[in-house]
């Protein structure tokens, strides 16, 4: 059904630490790898080795520059995937019931055999979390690795989303937001985890931890190494010096 559940038993989601993310895109690649080889239609690439490559990804890393009123700008790497919203507008617009939000854990999924590929759910999503696959012609989105997190064939440490498992910086955390004692609830409370586009009224489950302020750079400090970096040969000498002078006279 494309009506949303009143409440879900658990609220599984991600905390993404913008202070820690180094922008390596490892989460993008591990996501593409897992979700191409496992649940659902593969994530296609078109013209992958040609001049105009394009492909379906469920997770993408933007980079933004924040310029304060005074001082140096700060660069922030910003991974973005489905936020598994409580009031998911992508679910209610679906005409076929292919898009749904699970009552047991709040994961938003697409039943690909019911998807007619109308694209309306992607229109309704403010975050760009849904991409129509150019080859399969069905809507693809983050499944929160539903085929990993409950998978008893995997070792226990692998039962978390591929992006979280692979992050070398520990910038991604997976857990249950409905449990106030979970790792993600605690991180959100301690670090002031924020919602993206709260004014859109989607009530996203995923939270982003804001970057901490960086150390101040003292711009008026005298650089003691600077004299040693001055150009050594300011005037050309020898043949080049003669050539320079001769050409100058012409």
């Amino acid at each position: 059904m494309t009506t949303l559940p009143q409440t879900t038993e658990r609220k599984l989601g991600l905390v993404i630490d913008l202070d820690t993310c180094v922008g390596c895109h490892a989460c993008v690649i591990s996501c593409k790898g897992w979700n191409t080889e496992n649940y659902g239609a593969p994530l296609s690439d078109t013209d992958a080795y040609g001049g105009d490559p394009s492909g379906t990804f469920l997770n993408r890393v933007h980079s933004y520059e924040v310029q304060p009123e005074a001082g140096a700008a700060q660069l922030i790497h910003f991974p973005k995937s489905c936020l598994h919203c409580e009031d998911a507008p992508c679910v209610t617009v679906c005409p076929t019931g292919a898009s749904y939000k699970r009552v047991e854990d709040g994961i938003v999924l697409v039943n690909e055999t019911d998807c007619i590929g109308c694209g309306l759910c992607a229109w309704a999503c403010p975050y760009g979390a849904r991409e129509m696959d150019a080859v399969e012609k069905v809507m693809k989105k983050c499944t929160l690795c539903v085929d990993r997190i409950y998978n008893e064939n995997l070792p226990e440490e692998d039962r978390e989303p591929a992006c979280v498992r692979t992050c070398p910086a520990g910038a991604r955390h997976f857990g249950d937001f409905a449990d106030p004692d979970s790792n993600v609830s605690k991180l959100t409370a301690e670090r002031g985890g924020m919602e993206l586009m709260p004014e859109q009224g989607t009530k996203p489950v995923n939270r982003y931890l804001p970057p901490r302020p960086k150390d101040t750079i003292e711009t008026d400090q005298i650089d003691i190494l600077a004299p040693y970096l001055a150009p050594v040969a300011e005037e050309a000498t020898g043949f080049l010096g003669w050539l320079d002078k001769t050409l100058e006279k012409l």
């Binding site: 379906t56 990804f57 993408r60 980079s63 973005k80 302020p213």
Partner: peptide, 19 residues
């Protein structure tokens, strides 16, 4: 990120186009 100053898109996540 608006509380820290003015935000501008510095690098897109991909060099090609997408859906």
């Amino acid at each position: 990120l608006g509380t820290g100053g003015s935000v501008r898109a510095f690098e897109p996540p991909h060099t090609g186009t997408n859906y």
